[in-house]
Design a protein around this nucleic acid. Structure first.
Lengths: 372, 372
DNA sequence: CTTGACACCCAAAACGTTTTGGATTATGCT
DNA sequence: AGCATAATCCAAAACGTTTTGGGTGTCAAG
């Protein structure tokens, strides 16, 4: 016999290859039609009644509501979305460097975005994809064209970020945490990383340091770029020499910070201070320093970036640059909702001034002994 | 004039009150119909062609694919979902105690779930809601009935968890991280918390401790309950006296651990060891201990729970009970997908045996001097 | 020259909602 | 009575996809 309606080959779309769902009979949700049939009125009236249109008599409204409650009616979101052509959902594609990541950055950002979204009646669709992967590209593609979400958050912007150019081209609503190098104009919130590095270097110089190393974030990330740039500028502004060996690119993890610190301390000419591109690396770095028998905050000054909630709890507590990720998430969320609803943004480009948080890891004033 | 079709009153459903979307004309996505019209064939054939049915001539398939690519076709997921009656989306309602949370637990769990989901072609819908709030209830209601998601993760199970009873009643696919006290049967993964506490207490007893305090997780959380219970049992097993004053309920945050530690050390009869209900509290607690001039790991032994990635980076490094949250997330995700697709689970109830990770915070063997 | 088998295609229905464009009846006003 | 107005209600279309239940033409075997 000739078999039809059976999927033999691969899939064309983005669907998934699971066996067709056997009828889950126990879960027959009640629909508008059920209510309508029950009351002997039309589906239209039920729909409009529930939606509160003045079109429907108060008395009818009440009866509709009553049977809706009795039958345990919940609107089918998918159908609603199809008709309204909006999903009331915001998308967020997590760029995880390592599959097994655990970056407080994300949970804090998610908290800010999530709380704000929830209070505005939006849901959050999260997808985890390796940055630059084809899967990531596919996810953005799907987002931009498939009615997957109403708008997107782009985080950890990259230098020449193809995600952004793609979304700009497609004219898809999105907001970014961070800037990028491209011609297109888009709403973003960013922290002035260069200014942050400047502050921390000034702080270290004030403490008497001049041999300052930098464990940089990956340079393909825009904020990495800015921080590195800021590092050079600030060093120049203080007339300090920059040694190329004292600049190492880290991978944003504790382990990365640890190994970076150790390789810096293995140099014949050691720095007296190390700035890390984020707190996670700084915390790992301090461990690396301890492992070589030195004390961070005493023998080596350490500075971080982000002020994650744990940085005040490590020992020594971490001198760092505050980055209010939660607030940024919240703010970006309201911005995105405004963009989606085509409201004018009061500010399309927000550049936050960082604040230095001095704790113990930068240590006390040192003798000018190590000056060169 | 009488105005119609304008929403004067509130909404009936779960919709949101934004102005009706002004036609975003620039974003007219191409549909199957566009492709069909272009090729002069039917929508059916286009759909089946893209889906790879043998129903369609190879040549036609190729032409369909070509124009689909040319027109930049992406299937409308909402329409697909409505028709297929499945969303290929898994739901996750984050119970955040404080609005401004930042718990590595969630980011790690999200990573595990998210990676697994992505590789299986599922998306993740995340909502942030305060535990026990009406909004949380509404979110679960919507999930269970509205075709919002295909299945749910329930985390941080509570004693007598109404979320679980509700989902069981509704026969909705879900899996839980943790058990609960109710009659219903459901798939879960949990760690044997009681056994974990047992291990850590045995470790402390081996080191010579007998005056052991416990900063417990909230007792309305099921794992809190188990850990408290385990504490009593283990103490009894070692013939150690439990002082009620040495048991404090914490709020799972660093700050909570800090204040708990300080109030324990303010007692006239001090414990020599403190076990914290999670690593976050333990890290905060160690700071509290330092603040009173004592050294954790030297004057006071400290144990945690979870083994978050930072616990090996604090000073002293934290002795704790490993809880492989990432793996649990991954495992729960495959379980949930199996449940959704009505496959038999190989294991419906997984109870993981914890492993003790000894680091510096539990300190060396002490004199039996403080024995009573 | 039938008769199947086969390869390819399609119209219509369905999913559950909202919107459109009236229809129907009652009410008040000249 | 005649006419506008108000108060309710509703059938049908639409959203974009997949599934159902066929149809049509070709070719080889009888």
């Amino acid at each position: 016999m000739y078999i039809r309606n059976v999927l033999e080959t691969g899939f064309g779309g983005t669907g998934v290859g699971f066996p067709t769902n056997i009828n889950r009979e126990s879960r027959m949700a009640t629909t508008l039609r059920d209510i309508a049939r029950e009351l002997g009125i039309s589906v239209t009236t039920v729909s409009r009644g529930l939606a509160g249109y003045s079109d429907v008599a108060e008395d009818t409204k009440a009866r509709i509501q009553a049977t809706a409650d009795r039958l345990g009616y919940t609107p089918n979101l998918t159908a609603r979305r199809l008709q309204k052509r909006r999903t009331d959902t915001l998308g967020f594609i997590l760029p995880t460097l390592t599959p097994r990541f655990s970056d407080p950055f994300f949970s804090e950002f998610l908290a800010g975005v999530g709380n704000e979204a929830a209070s505005r009646g939006y849901d959050l669709l999260v997808s985890v994809q390796a940055p630059g992967s084809t899967e990531e590209r596919a996810a953005y593609e799907r987002a931009a064209a498939g009615g997957w979400v109403d708008g997107l958050f782009v985080v950890r912007t990259r230098v020449n970020d193809e995600r952004i150019t793609r979304l700009c081209d497609g004219n898809f609503p999105f907001v970014a945490f961070g800037r990028t190098e491209c011609d297109c104009e888009f709403p973003y919130v960013d922290e002035d990383s260069a200014a942050g590095v400047h502050q921390i270097i000034t702080h270290l110089v004030d403490l008497g340091h001049s041999a300052i190393a930098f464990v940089a974030p990956p340079s393909y990330l825009m904020f990495g770029r800015y921080r590195i740039q800021g590092f050079y500028e600030a060093m120049a502004a203080h007339n300090l020499e920059v040694r190329e060996k004292w600049i190492i690119e880290g991978d944003m993890t504790q382990r990365g910070g640890e190994t970076a610190a150790q390789s810096l301390l293995a140099l014949t000419e050691r720095p007296t201070a190390i700035i890390f591109g984020n707190d996670l690396m700084a915390i790992g770095g301090m461990n690396g320093i301890k492992a070589t028998g030195l004390q961070p905050g005493v023998d080596i000054a350490v500075g971080g970036f982000d002020n994650i909630s744990l940085s005040s709890y490590v020992t020594p507590s971490l001198t760092t640059i505050e980055q209010p990720i939660y607030d940024i998430g919240q703010r970006l969320c309201t911005m995105l909702i405004d963009v989606i609803n085509e409201r004018e943004l009061t500010e399309r480009h927000v550049l936050l001034s960082p604040t230095l948080i001095v704790r113990d890891s930068s240590g006390p004033r040192i003798q000018a002994g190590s000056r060169r």
